[in-house]
Design a protein around this nucleic acid. Structure first.
Length: 860
RNA sequence: GCCGGUGUGGUGAAAUGGCAGACACAACGGACUUAAAAUCCGUUGGCGCGAAAGCGCCGUGCGGGUUCGAGUCCCGCCACCGGUACCA
């Protein structure tokens, strides 16, 4: 990038100046209720960014895209008289800092502090109106003591199914409270990543590989802390309804939670007292169940397998256990399994069907056992074909009279049909539609105690512990093999000092190396797992409301003011990337609901309105990445074109939600526009400096000028409300272009332009506003000015252009007075020479008059 | 496979069912300049007719439909991007 390029306006002089001014004057500090400068008469607006992980490589242009959008909204709402909460902070626990520490020996806290300083500098150079007094940092003990405190709330509560709420554990009347807690210990198989030396949540495993780093992940049984998010599955679905979220994200969350309605059916095991329960969404196909499959891990397998089959079963189970998730995915095409030697009895007809184990049945979903209906399920079909198991058609596309003939029943279908239709070969169900058959058979099973309706969710409980150093330690100690919570007074529990942050490789967390720290008392030792990175981001939006509070995670007055407001969600606008659709956004909602149930927060949902900014691609149309060399660094853009131009371009390049490619030429276009605004006010001197121009004057705008001014106020206001910043900027360009060649140039027009421009390009507009004060008197600071109002009277034109169409094709245009009647407009249309020509010799069958718009004549 | 999203000039994109391409970028032409940059003015969807003013036809991924009128609504396809996958 050339450094000799002449700057079209001196942004490098005044942009840092204003940034320092805002910092020194604390212009954007927002007081809390009860503080001296707080004005309770104003409504509140809480606009939130997804806070960044301060990585070593600094911001990329995707960050300021969303941040600029919220900054515009925040500055705009402020001018509209709202108390605006617009904070920023750091999601700073996490793997990269720890891995850097392992490599260099430098403590993660040191690199984290350096990265934060770098990020903060970058954000400040963009002129964002954050209240930096509310900065939060998830690795700050003053912050994570409350993350730990919230964990204690989870630990000390349970989900009461009858009230459908989280309640204090004291209200639990069962015998084993530990089994009911929302935070509990489980021995279940988990996703273990050898390369990272830690376990991962389901959400962090993609295609059998770790989301971070892409390392292989395998399943291993380990003792882990879990959070009982599944108890909230239904509420997490239902309560999306009150939120103003993109439909796509709601669907992603719903699909992730994966509610499915079906029936539980109990199968007896032949020659045994054992019983196997399966879950199916197609109970109507029960007569077509020709075998049964258990997950290899299913506990009952041990009690079923026959002597002869044991070697094969043992070998298959071991193979399955060794398989990583990646292998399972790769081998998904080919079905595998082993017969246990046992048979189950189909409850509807007493038929003996073989019981198999196969890894296509997952241990964690439903009951870990299925009835296999190969004629009507693709997976069962494949499996049955491979192992030559019988296939019986029980659903047909049209109702069919059952022949009741055994030979006919055994005719195998030629392909799998998994759709809905009508029951056949199904005894009493024959002829019923799939929906009716489901209801009928479920009622029959229920009456005989052989099954019942039930609901299943794909969502699993949240694996909450990590074998890492750089995370929040659990406020838990162990004594005699039992866990117990620290008291809130013992928080924060800070991580120990360590020289070696490496994972042990055995699954034993690195904190175990700190022997002094580990010892809690003569008998008790500390939990050595740490919390996942998601913990800190689950509640940071609450801490922003009251960052300095040392006595509570958030003060009740501050919380109810900033998070209140009569909507389900407390944050008025939340902007961030789609990548958090099922992770952060689901976890945060879960924690929020627990806190709400326990009476700690005032709303059931955290985020009312959610907007996802679209990805910014490189100039080559590809995803930005270091290896492609197409990454754009905002610092370079600011050095070349200024912060206002970068902000403006980010908003002008297209709709906020759209994926769009970067274009340096586009930045230049915005810079040219801003330079044109600059020259509306300033004139270049002989020596190359700028001074206030002479053309601005306190003259009245004329009628046409008034129309541009008020049309612009109207459009820019409406566009900001709908986050259509690209079209708002177009209108500001139209506004500017309309006054470029005007002399004398009405001061009121220029001031209105600067006011509308302020949220987008705060530095240049503030500077010009101040310069105008040299001659015309001070009007205070622009960011404090009131947002202008438009007056419809200025928008009404005396005359209107009417489009004349014949059969929907434009043939002429006429000018009519604004108050012309329908009849008058039609008469004028009919008398137009071109219309006469186009309709000559034809019958006019119909005339459509759209007032103020067009006349359409329909001819034969 | 399934679930989302997107298809409009050379490019980024605009268009409450009512003049398709606002606003920009790029390109080209002109003014200013010794020259260049910057700036300002103009042209710019395609095809055809015309010396010109202008006129006509076609045009929003493809095929149907609804409507006086469709980029916009409905049905059926195609392509690309993103997510997700043995969830019974």
């Amino acid at each position: 990038m050339s450094t000799t390029r002449r700057k079209p306006y001196p942004f490098s002089d005044f942009e840092p100046k204003w940034q320092q001014h805002w910092d020194h004057a604390q212009t954007f500090h927002t007081p809390n209720p009860g503080e001296p400068d707080f004005d309770p008469a104003r409504p509140k607006y809480y606009v939130l960014d997804m806070f960044p992980y301060p990585s070593g490589s600094g911001l990329h242009v995707g960050h300021p895209e969303g941040y600029t959008a919220t900054d515009i909204i925040g500055r705009y709402k402020r001018m509209r008289g709202f108390n605006v909460l617009h904070p920023m902070g750091w999601d700073s626990f996490g793997l990269p800092a720890e891995q850097y520490a392992i490599k260099t020996g430098q403590h993660p806290a040191v690199t984290t502090a350096q990265n934060i300083a770098y990020f903060k500098g970058q954000l400040q150079r963009l002129g964002f109106a954050y209240d930096w007094q509310r900065e939060v940092n998830t690795t700050d003990p003053g912050y994570f003591r409350w993350t730990q405190w919230i964990f204690l709330q989870l630990y000390n509560s349970w989900f009461n199914p009858s009230s459908n709420r989280a309640e204090p554990i004291e209200t639990y009347s069962g015998s084993d409270a530990d089994s009911a807690r929302l935070a509990y210990v489980s021995e279940a198989p988990v996703n273990w990543c050898q390369a990272l030396g830690t376990v991962l949540a389901n959400e962090e495993v993609i295609d059998g590989k770790s989301e971070v780093g892409g390392h292989p992940v395998e399943r291993r049984p380990m003792r882990q802390w879990m959070l009982r998010i599944t108890a909230f599955a239904q509420r997490l679905i239902d309560e999306l309804d009150g939120l103003d979220w993109p439909e796509g994200i709601r669907l992603l969350q719903k699909n992730w939670i994966g509610r499915s309605e079906g029936t539980e059916v109990h199968f007896a095991v032949a020659d045994s007292a054992e019983k196997i329960t399966v879950f199916t969404t197609r109970p109507d196909t029960l007569y077509g169940a020709t075998y049964m499959v258990l997950a290899p891990e299913h506990a009952i397998v041990d009690r079923l397998v026959t002597e002869e089959q044991w070697p094969a079963v043992r070998e298959y189970r071991e193979k399955t256990a060794r398989k990583s998730d990646l292998d399972r995915t790769e081998l998904a095409k080919e079905k595998s399994g082993v017969w246990t030697g046992a048979f189950a009895l189909n409850p509807v007809n007493g038929e003996r069907i073989p019981i198999w184990i196969a890894d296509y049945v997952l241990p964690g979903y439903g009951t870990g056992a299925i009835m296999a209906v190969p004629a009507h399920d693709e997976r069962d079909w494949e499996f049955a074909r491979k192992f030559a198991l019988p296939i019986r058609e029980v659903v047909a596309t049209a109702p069919r009279v059952s022949i009741g003939n055994k030979a006919a029943c055994n005719t195998e279908p030629l392909e799998c049909f998994s759709g809905e239709g009508f029951a056949v070969n199904s005894g009493p169900l024959d002829g019923l539609s799939t929906a009716d058959a489901k209801a009928d058979i479920t009622a029959r099973l229920k009456a005989q105690g052989l099954g019942k309706k039930c609901v299943n969710y794909k969502l699993r409980d949240w694996l909450f512990s990590r074998q890492r150093y750089w995370g929040e330690p659990f406020p838990i100690v162990w004594e005699d093999g039992k866990h117990r919570a620290l008291s809130a007074a013992e928080l924060p529990l800070t991580p120990p000092e360590l020289a070696d942050f490496k994972p042990t490789g055995t699954g034993e967390p690195p904190l175990a190396k700190a022997t002094d720290w580990l010892r809690y008392s003569d008998k008790a030792t500390r939990e050595t797992n740490t919390m996942p990175q998601w913990a800190g981001s689950c509640w940071y939006y609450l801490r922003y409301c009251d960052t300095k509070n040392a006595g509570r995670f958030v003060g009740t007055d501050a919380e109810s003011y900033w998070m209140g407001g009569g909507q389900p969600g407390g944050v008025d606008l939340y902007v961030g990337g789609t990548e958090h659709a099922v992770l952060h956004l689901l976890y945060a909602r879960f924690w929020h609901k627990v806190l709400h149930d326990l009476g700690h927060v005032s709303t059931p949902e955290p985020f009312q309105r959610l907007v996802n900014q679209g990805l910014i691609l490189g100039e080559d149309g590809q995803k930005m990445s270091k290896s492609r060399g197409n990454v754009v660094n905002p610092d370079d853009v600011i050095a070349e074109y200024g912060a206002d131009a970068l902000r403006g371009y980010l908003m002008f390049m297209g709709p906020l939600e759209a994926v769009k490619p970067w274009s340096m030429a586009g930045v230049e276009g915005i810079a040219r526009f801003l330079a044109r605004v600059w020259r509306l006010v300033m004139e270049e001197q002989q020596d190359g400096t700028f001074a206030l121009g002479a053309v601005s004057a306190e003259t009245e705008p004329d009628k046409a000028q008034f129309r541009v001014i008020h049309a612009s106020i109207k459009k820019v206001t409406a566009d900001i409300e709908t986050l259509s910043f690209n079209t708002a900027l177009s209108q500001l360009m139209v506004f500017t272009n309309a006054f470029v060649n005007v002399s004398p140039r009405p001061l009121s027009a220029v001031r209105t332009l600067l006011t509308l421009l302020q949220p987008f390009a705060p530095h240049i507009s503030e500077e010009l506003w101040k310069n105008l004060a040299q001659r015309f008197g001070s009007a205070g600071e622009l960011c404090d000015a009131a947002w202008p109002q438009w007056d419809e009277r200025f928008l009404i034109e005396d005359e209107m252009e009417i489009v004349l169409q014949v059969n929907g094709k434009v043939r002429d245009k006429i000018i009519v007075p604004k108050d012309a009647t329908r009849e008058a407009v039609e008469a004028l249309a009919r008398s137009s020479a071109k219309i006469v020509e186009w309709t000559a010799g034809k019958e006019i069958k119909k005339v459509i008059v759209v007032p103020g718009k067009l006349v359409n004549l329909v001819v034969a």
